[in-house]
């Protein structure tokens, strides 16, 4: 065995020396190649540390900028106070926080059932032809800029709420309301939830479907009792990701939600979500003391909530992928 492997080796080395007239040069070239490789390894490794670093930098930057307002006002005053008067230094963010929560909850209530049903349809029932049409559609839907959704909201959703939903509920409304924001957001969240639920349901092994069907279950029973059960952590994670997408969406909501500083009492009242607060006041924030600090604090609140949701659902999705693969 040893002899056999030694023979081609010597053959090769003889060969190389005979072809290459200056073996010294060749060695040098090889060394340079490997040195370059080692050097580049370090370079690309440094780059790969960039993403965790950036995440830390974003958090640190916002924390540093929100320290001034935290020194003047207590955390509970900021988060639970409903008095927002920048000129007198009152920065109660509760109206904004509640508006954000209301808008997001409405959107998620609309989006979850519709998206999950559609995702089930796409993964279990739909034919190849429909999938071929649906997949690019969803890609396009998720690629449309939010300002376009906003325009659509202003042109279609707002008049609809003002002319039909308001009178029907017996409430006078301009149409610029929490409900309009929720509807526009729901449409923006559809592709997020559908795409993840679809992926998760696809990795549920086919054997499970076949086994339940062979036991006499109808197709829907096999989906409801077996497949959804297997995929449920992924479905929950998808909904949470959709939720956090809706939570931070800015321009589309800003355009239809009315932007009045008040605690909304019903879904046809105007609201003022946190992202809108930040985006609307970038002009004034340098001229009023502490205003920039409170806006950065608002951004930090947004970031922290979104981070918690994201970390949790990514963790669930990763674990699920490992388990099912």
């Amino acid at each position: 065995m040893e002899i056999q492997s030694a023979i081609p080796n010597t053959a090769i080395s003889q060969n190389t020396t005979s072809v290459n007239t200056s073996p010294h040069n060749k060695n040098d070239r090889g060394r340079r190649r490997f040195a370059f490789d080692k050097f580049m390894e370090r370079v690309v490794k440094i780059f790969s540390f960039f993403s965790p670093l950036l995440l830390i930098l974003i958090i640190a930057g916002l924390v540093i900028k929100s320290i001034p307002v935290l020194q003047e006002n207590s955390l509970s005053d900021l988060l639970l106070g409903s008095n927002f008067k920048p000129f007198t230094g009152d920065f109660g963010l509760l109206p904004f926080i509640l508006s954000t929560v209301y808008v997001t909850v409405i959107s998620i209530v609309i989006a979850i059932p519709l998206s999950i049903l559609t995702a089930i349809y796409l993964s279990e029932y739909a034919g190849k032809a429909f999938l071929k049409f649906a997949a690019p559609m969803l890609d396009i839907l998720s690629g449309i800029p939010s300002v376009i959704y906003g325009i659509w909201g202003v042109l279609v959703v707002v008049p609809f709420i003002r002319d039909y939903v308001g009178p029907w509920m017996g409430i006078e409304t301009t149409g610029y309301s929490i409900l309009s924001g929720g509807i526009v957001l729901a449409i923006m969240v559809f592709p997020v939830i559908i795409q993840i639920v679809f992926e998760v349901m696809r990795i549920v092994p086919n054997e499970l479907r076949e086994a339940t069907l062979s036991l006499g279950a109808t197709k829907w029973e096999s989906i409801r009792k077996v497949i959804i059960k297997k995929a449920s952590p992924g479905i929950i994670a998808a909904c949470i990701l959709g939720f956090s997408r809706a939570f931070g969406e800015t321009i589309a909501v800003l355009m239809v939600v009315g932007n009045m500083v008040q605690i909304p009492h019903n879904i046809l009242d105007a609201g003022y979500p946190i992202p809108s607060l930040i985006a609307n006041n970038y002009g004034e924030m340098m001229s009023i003391p502490m205003y920039d600090s409170v806006l950065m604090f608002a951004a930090l609140v947004l970031l922290v909530i979104v981070l918690i949701f994201n970390v949790y659902s990514r963790w669930v999705l990763n674990r699920l992928e490992k388990k099912l693969n």
């Binding site: 950065m296 979104v306 981070l307 970390v311 990514r314």
Partner: peptide, 15 residues
């Protein structure tokens, strides 16, 4: 990267 993907663009703006 996945977590950063979820951060709203307004937060990037603030950052």
């Amino acid at each position: 990267l996945d977590i950063m993907f979820g951060i709203p663009s307004i937060v990037y703006g603030a950052f």
